[in-house]
Design a protein around this nucleic acid. Sequence first.
DNA 1: ATCGCAACTGCGATCATTTCTCAATAGTCG
DNA 2: CGACTATTGAGAAATGATCGCAGTTGCGAT
Lengths: 142, 142
Amino acid sequence: MTSSASDLKAALAVAGLRLTGPRLAVWEVVSSASDHMTADEIASEVGRVDPTVNRSSVYRSLALFDELGLMRQSSLGPTDASHWELAHPDEQFHMRCESCGSVEHHTGDLVDRVRDHLAGDHGFQATRVDLLVTGLCRNCHP
Amino acid sequence: MTSSASDLKAALAVAGLRLTGPRLAVWEVVSSASDHMTADEIASEVGRVDPTVNRSSVYRSLALFDELGLMRQSSLGPTDASHWELAHPDEQFHMRCESCGSVEHHTGDLVDRVRDHLAGDHGFQATRVDLLVTGLCRNCHP
DNA sequence: ATCGCAACTGCGATCATTTCTCAATAGTCG
DNA sequence: CGACTATTGAGAAATGATCGCAGTTGCGAT
């Protein structure tokens, strides 16, 4: 068991939950991915490692990890399937280029500044900021 | 025909498209709504006015209006159904209170500032900014 | 170790939302 | 009027996600 797996086990344990095969498989697939993945991609990859794992369990695991704050669900458009990635301590957002289709993950203080602005000016205490920017990336605009 | 309906007709005409019954009905329902609506709510309301209008046409009209920049599609969570509202010249974003469930539409320079920040620091030319903030509104947090 | 029980899973049905296909209809322009 | 094309209704189907249930299993307590 790798160290991140025992971390996962500990995180589950404090909530009275267990580290199971499906959950570990989902965790390993997502955490070893270089990019974010759709639930479907995750399910396929998990299925290659362990074909007995059911799709429902993948969804259940993802929802659980999201609830525990271990992963983050995001969407690249109202119609598209959700994407999943490990939660990052610095909140991040996505910039999608509508020309080349690339999706850049971006970390920075922008999200924090949005949060502060809302707290100050609007009395709104943000727990979660979902920001998706669509446009032309550096390589694609004139 | 109201003035906004003839504006709509003109906007369609420049694209070589027609103002039809279903399109007008969808337009009137959405533009007379005080809040944003789901496609399902729009379809129901359109159905009350004209029961012969098919659901598909509602979806088609909404997609068309979005493409023409007349309406705006947004989503309050990766799983939730899309919501539609008239496009607003000042871009706006949504603040959803996770306690009382209220959704506040907010207009302001925040979105523009995000846009400017990305253009300056990251060379990203944003055409669209989707911002959803979840948290506790003024009335619900301590 | 092994026991016991609640957490968890596989399975498959089911749901909700949205898109598709296609033949029929209807504006619009000459 | 006649042809051309946009548009529609109708319903099937694709997609993404969730649910209920009966059986299984992880893991702390014994």
